[in-house]
Amino acid sequence: MSGAPIFGAQGAVIRGIVSRSFSNECHAFGAMLGPAMHLELGGIPRGAHAAFAHDV
């Protein structure tokens, strides 16, 4: 399920992405979209490095 969209508002919108899921522990973690919006999309993010040679 890694990368799967997590829907909120009764399925109206995506609020996050499944990050880790563990079938044996009945638990999953997800990354929220909102707090990630300050990250720069094109080029090198502030204080971090883009992992890939070709950015969007």
């Binding site: 399925g11 909102g34 919006m37």
Partner: peptide
């Protein structure tokens, strides 16, 4: 595309995940 929201979940709100498990 699917619709996105930047608003966080509120306690008690249902979450659905749809994927290729």
């Amino acid at each position: 595309p699917l619709n996105m929201s930047l608003n966080p979940f509120v306690p008690g709100e249902m979450a659905y995940a749809l994927g290729y498990a």
